Amino acid sequence: MNLKDEINKKAISWLIKDREGLTQNEEAQFKKWIKNINHQKAFEQNKLLMNEYLTLDKKFINDIEFQIEKETKSVSFFNKSKYLVASIIMLFCISFLYNKYDNKVFSKEYTSLDKKILKISLLDNSIIDLDTNSNIQIEYKKDKRKIRFTKGKALFSVAKDNKRPFQIKTENIMIEVLGTKFEVINLSGITTVNVVEGSVKISYLSNNKKEDKKDLIVLKKADHYKIDKQGRIIEFGKIKINDIASWKNDLIYFKNDTLEKAFLVFEKYTNKKIIFDTYSLSQLKITGKFKSNQFDDFLEAVKVLYPISVVKKENIIKLVNK
Rank of each mutant, 00 (worst) to 15 (best):
L299D: 07
K273L: 11
S282D: 07
T270N: 12
D250V: 10
I120G: 08
Q29T: 04
V265Q: 14
E27C: 06
F77C: 08
P165D: 08
S280G: 04
L187D: 12
M90G: 05
K312W: 01
S292L: 05
Q167R: 13
L319F: 15
E300Q: 11
I308G: 06
K58L: 07
E52N: 03
N103K: 13
F92V: 12
K31T: 09
L305H: 07
H39F: 05
K47Q: 10
L281G: 01
I244R: 10
F263E: 04
N172K: 09
I7F: 02
I147W: 01
E6M: 08
K17C: 02
L305A: 14
K273T: 13
D215N: 14
V310W: 02
T270R: 11
I120P: 05
D297L: 10
N194G: 03
I7Y: 05
I234F: 08
F60A: 09
A154H: 02
V304K: 15
Q137V: 01
K153M: 03
K108A: 06
C93H: 06
K163S: 14
D131E: 08
L281I: 07
L187Q: 13
K248R: 15
F263I: 10
I68A: 02
V200R: 03
S292N: 10
K221G: 01
L187C: 09
L122I: 04
N25R: 13
F149E: 00
L54T: 08
K312Q: 14
Y279I: 13
L299M: 13
N99T: 11
K221Q: 14
I316M: 10
K151N: 10
